[in-house]
Nucleic acid binder design. Sequence first.
DNA 1: TATGAATGAGTCTTCATTCAT
DNA 2: AATGAATGAAGACTCATTCAT
Lengths: 207, 207, 207, 207
Amino acid sequence: MVSKFLNLDSEKQNRILNAAINEFAEKGYENASTNDIVKEAGISKGLLFHYFKNKKQLFLFLYDYCIDVSLTEFYKKIDLNERDFFVRLRQIHLIKAELLNKYPKMLKFIEVANIEKSSDIENDLNVINKDELENASKRVFDGIDLSKFRDGIDIEKAINVVIWSFQGFNAKVLEEAKLSSSKQINYDKAFIEAEAYTEMLKSCFYK
Amino acid sequence: MVSKFLNLDSEKQNRILNAAINEFAEKGYENASTNDIVKEAGISKGLLFHYFKNKKQLFLFLYDYCIDVSLTEFYKKIDLNERDFFVRLRQIHLIKAELLNKYPKMLKFIEVANIEKSSDIENDLNVINKDELENASKRVFDGIDLSKFRDGIDIEKAINVVIWSFQGFNAKVLEEAKLSSSKQINYDKAFIEAEAYTEMLKSCFYK
Amino acid sequence: MVSKFLNLDSEKQNRILNAAINEFAEKGYENASTNDIVKEAGISKGLLFHYFKNKKQLFLFLYDYCIDVSLTEFYKKIDLNERDFFVRLRQIHLIKAELLNKYPKMLKFIEVANIEKSSDIENDLNVINKDELENASKRVFDGIDLSKFRDGIDIEKAINVVIWSFQGFNAKVLEEAKLSSSKQINYDKAFIEAEAYTEMLKSCFYK
Amino acid sequence: MVSKFLNLDSEKQNRILNAAINEFAEKGYENASTNDIVKEAGISKGLLFHYFKNKKQLFLFLYDYCIDVSLTEFYKKIDLNERDFFVRLRQIHLIKAELLNKYPKMLKFIEVANIEKSSDIENDLNVINKDELENASKRVFDGIDLSKFRDGIDIEKAINVVIWSFQGFNAKVLEEAKLSSSKQINYDKAFIEAEAYTEMLKSCFYK
DNA sequence: TATGAATGAGTCTTCATTCAT
DNA sequence: AATGAATGAAGACTCATTCAT
C-alpha cells in the first residue's frame, strides 16, 4: 500500500508529504484533519486512503519518514573526526539549528509526535523510537576523546550532565523568546551565554 | 456557576473531579470526551454543564484546581529551613515523587495542560501559568546558603546546571522504566544513581 | 394550578407575568427559555412549574391574560356613542397606538402568538381566538350609523374594504419605518396620509 | 459547496429540497430539525452538511430558490398585455392560487421566511428581499391603463386600497376555511364574493 | 489510478421538566 | 410555598473512512 505511494512522481509525493506533516505538526494527531490534508495537497479524499489505509498509518509513516530524512541529513553534516566532546556538542546544536531552519515543520512534527498522547498512536510509536533513535544518539558521540576528562570522574555521568544542561538551556532560551515582546530568539545573547556554560562545564569535567 | 460545584458534597465533587482530570490527562483537551467524563463520574449529561458552562471552562477550572492543590501540598511539606542547596533539591524531588504517588493523574494533567496545543486553551493557560507557577519555582529555592559555592563561580548558572541535570536524570529514569519489562521504576537503583550525580555536581560547584 | 398563581401577591405575579410576556414576545414560543424567564422574574426553576404545569400552559395562560387586559382597556377607552364609522375607526387606531405605548410587549406578544407556527400551540390557540376575539371585533363597531352610507351599497363589504385598507396602510407605514434610516415612524406624515385615505373612502361609500 | 448540490441528479435533489422546504414551512427556522429533514429526505446526517455548510445557509439557499421558482412561474403566466387594472388583479390572484396548488409548501415557506424572527436569519433575508421582491411587485402592475380611473382621484392611493382590500379578502377566505368543518376553501362562494368586491371598488374608482 | 458522494457514530451543548428537600 | 440539583432526549455539526464509478 505504502509502496504504491513511493512509486508516485515525487512532485505529488512531496505535496502530500508536506501537507500532512504540516497539518499534524500544527494540530497534533487527533485534531489534524484528513480533509484539510487532501485540500492542501490538492488530491481527492479517496486517494489518500488509497495510499495509506488510515490516518494512523499515515501518521506512523510520516514519523518514520521524518526521522529518516533528518537523521540522514544530520549524519551527512556531522564531522565525526572532531574528537573534542564540547566542540562536537556545539556542532550538534548548530546542525540542529540548521535543520530546524531547513525543515521547520518536519522537526516540529517529530516533537509533536513524541509528545502525542493519543492512545491510538502512543504504543506503536515507542517501537520505532527504540530502534531508530536510540542508537542514533549513541553514534552521535562516537569517537569522542575521553582522555581529556579529569581522572576519577564517571565520564558517562559527566557527559549526561552536559547534555542535559544544554537541553535545559535550549528550553530556557525558547521559553524566554516566547515570553518576550518580539517572540524572537536573541541568538547573539544565547550564543554568549552558551559559551559561558560550556566553559563552566569544561572546568568541571576536563583536566 | 462554578460556585455551585464547590457547594456539592465532596464525594460527588471528587467523582467528577477525578473523572475529568483522568480523561484530560489521558487524552488531552480536544480528544477528551465530556461524554466519557459524565459516564465515569456517574452523572448525567446535563449536570456537568450545570456546573461548568462548557468544556473549556471545565478544563481551566481543573488546571487552577490542580495547581492549587499540588502547590499547597508542596509548600506544606518542604522544609525551607534547610539551607543546603543539594539537600533542598533532594527534598524537592522526594516531595514530587510523593505527590506523584498520591495524585498521579493530577500531575499528569498539569503536564498535559502545559503542553496543550489547542489554540482554544493555549492563551488562557499562559496567563495563569505566569502568575502562579513562576514565583512558585522561585520560592522553592528561597534562603539557600550561597556561601557554600566555590568562589568565582557563576552561581545562577551552576544552579541551573544542577536543576537541568536532575530534570534530565528524571526523564531518563522514566524512559528506562517505560522501556523495561516491568514498566516500573527501580527506585533503589535510581536513588543510588541520583546520589552519584549529586556528589559529582557538588564536587564541581561547592568549595 | 393556575389558581395558585392568581393568589400570589401581585408584585411577584407581575414580575413573573412581565418576564414571561417579554421573553415570548422577543423570541417566540419555541425559542423562549423558561430558564431566562425565571432568571428575569427572580424566582426558582421549580416555582414556575409549580404554577404552570408546562411551558405550553404558561404560554396559553399568558395569551388569555393579554387578550383580557388589552380588550378590557380597549373597551374602557372606546366611545361607543360616537356613531360615525370613520370617526370610530380613527378612534380605534388611536387607542391601539396608546395601548402599544402602554403595553408594548403585551401587544407584541399577542401578535407573535397569532403567528406562532409551533404545532404544539397552534391548535389550542384557535379555540381561544374564536371565542374571545371574534365577538370583540364585532362589538367594536356596535351602533354605527349606517344611514350615512350611500344607498344601494353593500355596507358590510364597504366596511371591510375600509378596515382592510387601513390594515394595509398600517403595514405600509411600519414597513417604511423599518427601511428608513431612522427606523422611526414619521407620525405627522402618516397622519396626513391617513386622512387622505379616509377622505377618499368616505367619498366612495358615504352619501 | 452549494454547486455540488446543484450537480446532483434531480430526483435526490428534489427529495432534499422538498423535505427541507416542508420542514421549515411547517416549523419555522429555529424549530425545524435538520435531523427530521435528512430522515424525510432519506439521506444521511453528513450529506446535508456536505452540501450546505450549516442550517442557516440551507435556509437562505431555499429562500432564494423558492423566490426564483415562484417568480419565474409567475411571470411566465401573467399576461402583461392586459391593461385593465381589475382584470390584471384578478389574473394575479388566479395565478397565485394556481401556484399555491402546485407548490403549496414553497409559498408557505416564503411566507414563513418573511415573518421569521430569528435574529440569525432576519438580517440576511432583508437584503435579498429588497432586491428581488420589491421590483417584482412593481413590474406586476406595469402598463396599467390609468385613463380608466376617475379624474381628480389619487390613483396610487386608489390602487393601494384595491390591493389591500383583496389582501384582506384573501385572509378572510383562508380564516373562514380554517374555522370551517371541512377545512376547505369554498372557491365558488369566494369567487362570487370577490366579483362583488371588484364591482364595488370599480364603481368607486373607475370613471 | 483517481474521484468525491455518502455514511453514521461521535462531538459539545441546551432545555423543559421533575423531585427530594 | 420554594428551591435548584438532576435528568436525558434532542439539537447542530464533524470527520475518518468506504465505495461505486
